[in-house]
Write a protein that binds this DNA or RNA. Structure first.
Length: 606
RNA sequence: GGCGCAGUAGUUCAGUCGGUUUAGAAUGCCAGCCUGUCACGCUGGAGGUCGUGGGUUCGAGCCCCAUCUGCGUCGCCA
């Protein structure tokens, strides 16, 4: 049965015992990782977040304590007092394997049910179970390491930006909904019936107002919310390292930030990233890698073979080209012996990215491929030269009337084939900046231009003249930082001119009344002396995922949500009492013609 | 909203062509024994809504339909 702590104070954590403490009387507390009862001799491995240490009870231990120890099960919470001694049989695999605590007094502070999975790194439990019992999952050493690392990274972040002259300033979580961007999470106002706060998608407007207010270097480790579908690298609530600088241009911002990232990699991974980071324009990144976040750890760049494809008799190529599209290819090194089955599988893969199909060619002496009927020996030679392909390589070709589909599907194919063929080197870190993003992109659904980054991003000065004539060609003073194909962060120089900002809103199709309603306070602020400013925001969760070597951000978030945005541990979101709804002047209209009150639903609820 | 994968003991899984016992294995759990274990060992035992609901069939863990849950992904994510 559970006992009270008789006022004992821990001497140290379990794995913090040292050989120097041998012979000393220590008080330790923690969880029973494993109890081994050999009859007259009982071992208990005591665990806490520092690691483990072995407890031992033998014939010299008080009999009552031996009996108690015999009843100890996994995950019981224990407090023990005893003498630290050198072990007679050392365990070299254990950090504290040379010592053990000989127990004189043992208190069971808490008993425990048998956990649904082992509290070990290779627990092997499925993720739903882990998330339901997240507090047990978080006891696993690998999860504790991840969260401890996260603590270290946020501390390094605060220290770095502090030294650089940044102030950490909090911004509100209950803010005004903005029409652009992702779906907002809404919070009803009790005081103003029918009015809603939104949770911030980012502190964007507030950090710009802080620049107006004269806090010329701001940063914040900020919670952000976007009501959109989840992915392995996306949660509805996530954390940004958010910063903004006044009086600084793009090069100064990039300089500070690549020093920041390189500092983190040095401190956390012990890796030196060469400064400055390479830079690619968005155009270059798209045409060479088919991605705005290229993974530079390996080659396999895209080749434009449109002109050569025009000389083939392949109807698919001709159709794509005459419709204004392109034909592009990648070369898979040593891919010549690929099977039809594997080709089919890759063709299936690119279809998810809206590519119609996949052509292939092995330019060996006895060429193989799906387009042999349409290309002669001379053309094969030219294609191989253009694609830098040897007779042992495989050329994969995508054609489409949309150049965008060709580029993105081929870019994804580049990543997928590299993964399948094991061409991505482990332990390599390749950081870069991607710059000169388009300012706008066309929204097919809304039939209008939308901001690619956000509506406060400044156009490049060289392209100002295109704003009225060809806005889709205007490039932005925007930049993303990318490491190993992961977009870690992105930012821009902001518009700090009221007229320019108004023009931007108008190009985005936002009427003056809407602008006044949503952004009036920003435009008004711009009348009171705005320094030029710009900033960047990092996805802390993605950064942690990369540094911890995980493939899902859920592994570096203490209490993550699942794909439908619910929490398996708490059951959130939940229904609320009618009284609560009434206080907020809310009425829930359920779909499927049924007007059910929450209380009715409650009846059916488990 | 679309596509794909998964769901069988507490857990991780196997389960052949739809038919042999009471649906198995490992691990965990429980009991007994055990003085140097650390994946302790040995002996014995308990433990199942085969995700759920229909259907086909003489017969369904297995086939069909629907549905729920989790994961991946497209759309979406300024």
């Amino acid at each position: 049965m559970a006992e009270l702590n008789p006022g004992w104070i821990r001497s140290c954590r379990t794995a913090e015992v040292t050989n120097e403490m041998i012979g000393k009387r220590l008080t330790l507390m923690g969880w029973c990782h494993k109890q081994r009862d050999l009859g007259g001799l009982i071992f208990i491995t005591l665990r806490d977040r520092s690691g483990e240490v072995q407890l031992v009870l033998d014939e010299d231990s008080p009999a009552a304590m031996r009996d108690k120890a015999a009843s100890v099960r996994s995950e019981f919470v224990l407090a023990v007092q005893g003498i630290l001694r050198k072990r007679s049989s050392v365990n070299p695999d254990m950090k504290t394997g040379e010592v053990e605590l000989w127990v004189e007094d043992l208190r069971i502070l808490s008993t425990a049910k048998t956990p649904p999975f082992y509290i070990e790194d290779d627990a092997g439990a499925n993720e739903a179970l882990r998330l339901k019992y997240r507090y047990l999952d978080l006891r696993r050493p690998v999860m504790q390491e991840n969260l401890i690392l996260r603590h270290r990274v946020t501390k390094l972040t605060r220290d770095f930006f502090d030294v650089e002259g940044f102030l950490e300033i909090e911004t509100p979580l209950l803010i005004k909904s903005t029409p652009e961007g992702a779906r907002d999470y809404l919070v009803p106002s009790r005081v103003f019936p029918g009015h809603f706060f939104a949770l911030p998608q980012s502190p964007q407007l507030f950090k710009q107002l802080l620049m107006v207010a004269g806090y010329d270097r701001y940063f914040q480790i900020a919670r952000c919310f976007r009501d959109e579908d989840l992915r392995a690298d996306r949660q509805p609530e996530f954390t940004q390292i958010d910063l903004e600088l006044a009086f600084a241009g793009q090069s100064e911002i990039m300089d500070i930030n690549e020093r920041f990232i390189s500092m983190l990699f040095k401190e956390v991974l012990g890796r030196e990233l060469a400064l400055p980071f390479p830079r690619l324009t968005w155009q270059q990144a798209m045409s060479r890698f088919g991605s705005d976040k290229p993974d530079l750890r390996f080659g396999m760049e895209l080749h434009d073979i449109s002109d050569l494809a025009a000389d083939s008799d392949f109807r698919v190529f001709q159709a794509a080209l005459s419709a204004g599209g392109s034909v592009r290819a990648i070369t898979v090194p040593h891919g010549a012996d690929i099977s039809r089955k594997e080709i089919d599988s890759l063709a299936e893969y690119v279809k998810t990215y809206r590519a119609q199909g996949l052509a292939w060619l092995v330019p060996s002496d006895l060429p193989r491929g799906s387009i042999l009927k349409f290309v002669d020996a001379d053309l094969i030679k030219k294609l191989a030269e253009r694609c830098d392909a040897s007779t042992e390589d495989l050329i994969l070709i995508i054609a489409d009337s949309s150049d965008d589909i060709v580029l993105t599907s081929l870019g994804e194919l580049r990543l997928e084939t590299a993964r399948r063929f094991g061409l991505i080197p482990e332990g390599k870190w390749e950081a870069l900046w991607v710059t000169e993003f388009p300012l706008f992109e066309y929204d097919e659904e809304e039939k209008r231009l939308v901001a690619k980054h956000h509506p406060f991003t400044a156009p490049m000065l060289e392209d100002m003249g295109l704003l009225d004539t060809a806005p889709e060609q205007v490039r932005a003073q925007a930049y993303d930082i990318v490491v190993n194909g992961v977009e870690l962060g992105g930012g821009s120089i902001r518009i700090h001119d009221q007229d320019m900002q108004n023009k931007m809103f108008s190009l985005l199709g936002l009427g003056p009344e809407l602008v006044e309603e949503r952004f009036g306070f920003l435009l008004e602020a711009f009348q009171y002396g705005v320094p030029p400013h710009g900033g960047i925001a990092y996805g802390l969760d993605r950064l942690m995922m990369l540094l911890a070597g995980e493939s899902s951000i859920r592994e570096v978030i203490a209490f993550p949500k699942v794909q439908n945005s619910s929490c398996l541990m708490t059951g959130a979101p939940g229904i609320v009492d009618n009284d609560q709804l009434m206080e907020l002047s809310l009425f829930v209209q359920h779909k499927k013609d049924e007007t059910t009150t929450p209380d009715d639903i409650d009846e059916d609820r488990e």
